[in-house]
Amino acid sequence: MAEQDGLWLVPYIEPQLLEEAVNYNDDFIAALGKPDAKAIGKDGIYFNKLNNNVGFKVNASTDFTPAQMTGKKNMVPWDKLDTTPTNITDKEMRALAFDKESEVRKKQMAAWKLGVRGYTVSKIAPKQHASGKMPVIRTTGEVINGRKRLKSQDLYNFYEEIEALKLADPNGFHFVLNSTHRADLMYEKSKTSNHWDIEFDPITGKVKRFYKFNLWENLDTANYTAEGVLKSLGSLPTEGDQSASVFFYAPNTVYHIEDLLVLYKEMKTDTRSVDPQSEIRLHTYGLCDKKQEHGFGALVSDNA
């Protein structure tokens, strides 16, 4: 049944609002690194790094000379994260059968969460393939809907690329599968009785751990061009773009949201409008980024 613009008023119908058909799954964000409170400044978050120049000798025959361990420093500036404002008029408030102001607040928060999720994925995904630092590889499975499926061998190949990065903490390996790649793996698993090391919950279909990878899933993650370059957040799709699943090494990430401000202009302060109105939007300073360009990756659907 087609939807029409506008809202039903009190005389016609009881308040029944449709649920949003959008995936707000952002649980992977909890795995991102948290900054030390002392490093949080007004301009951003400050980092120091010592360059490890410690050597190792076997059967040394000469005296040792101590070396100074030097360091590097950087500061990651805040990003401003905002929703666009919504206004509500007194006329609407009197005529509608539900509390529109309350519902608008909920929609604002839902939009903010969805926006932060997209922002986060775009910040942790590699800009493009960087050998030995941030691998970006393509799928090789059978063709479906203009792309090649992800198959188990691709996942093993990607796992080998990540292992070669020699990341120290095995508990920090996180891989966010997009929904099409999860479906690809379920499809392949259903076609064989052979055991391979990925599990799905038989009730919920939720994907579980794959060796060291803590597996998360999302409707969508990052998109790459046909040339293998990460699409910027909010950019329009072009021919050859494909979605990716994204790997991140948690110790090399930082995520922090400052206090979320609800910016609200009360209706009773509007002394000029014929139909007085209130306005609301959400505003905060936040930060998600790579501490260093090492320990990230993407597995991208290849074009058919």
Score class of each variant (00 low, 15 high):
2 A>Q: 08
2 A>E: 13
4 Q>W: 12
4 Q>L: 15
7 L>R: 12
8 W>C: 06
10 V>E: 12
18 L>F: 11
19 E>P: 07
20 E>T: 11
20 E>P: 02
22 V>A: 12
23 N>F: 07
24 Y>P: 03
24 Y>E: 11
26 D>K: 07
28 F>R: 04
34 K>P: 00
34 K>G: 01
37 A>F: 08
40 I>T: 07
47 F>D: 06
47 F>E: 03
48 N>E: 15
51 N>C: 05
56 F>T: 07
60 A>V: 12
60 A>C: 09
63 D>I: 06
63 D>M: 05
66 P>S: 04
70 T>A: 08
71 G>E: 15
72 K>D: 14
74 N>D: 11
74 N>S: 09
78 W>F: 12
86 T>L: 11
87 N>W: 14
90 D>M: 08
92 E>Y: 06
93 M>L: 10
93 M>C: 09
95 A>Q: 13
97 A>P: 10
98 F>S: 04
100 K>R: 09
104 V>F: 07
105 R>K: 15
108 Q>E: 15
108 Q>K: 13
115 G>Q: 11
118 G>T: 04
125 A>I: 00
126 P>L: 00
134 M>Y: 06
136 V>W: 08
138 R>T: 09
140 T>P: 05
140 T>D: 09
141 G>S: 06
142 E>V: 04
143 V>E: 15
145 N>L: 07
146 G>F: 03
148 K>F: 10
149 R>Q: 13
149 R>Y: 03
150 L>E: 02
156 Y>Q: 13
160 E>M: 14
166 K>M: 01
166 K>V: 00
167 L>E: 01
169 D>A: 07
172 G>I: 01
184 D>G: 06
184 D>W: 05
186 M>C: 02
187 Y>A: 12
187 Y>M: 12
188 E>I: 01
189 K>F: 03
191 K>T: 03
195 H>S: 11
197 D>L: 08
199 E>S: 14
200 F>I: 10
205 G>V: 01
207 V>D: 03
208 K>E: 14
210 F>K: 03
215 L>I: 15
215 L>G: 05
219 L>T: 11
228 G>S: 14
231 K>R: 15
232 S>Q: 08
238 T>F: 11
239 E>Q: 13
240 G>V: 08
242 Q>N: 15
243 S>M: 14
250 A>Y: 05
251 P>G: 08
259 D>V: 09
259 D>M: 07
262 V>A: 13
263 L>G: 06
264 Y>S: 11
267 M>E: 07
271 T>W: 06
274 V>M: 13
284 T>P: 00
286 G>L: 04
293 E>Q: 10
293 E>T: 04
294 H>L: 10
296 F>N: 00
300 V>T: 01
300 V>Y: 13
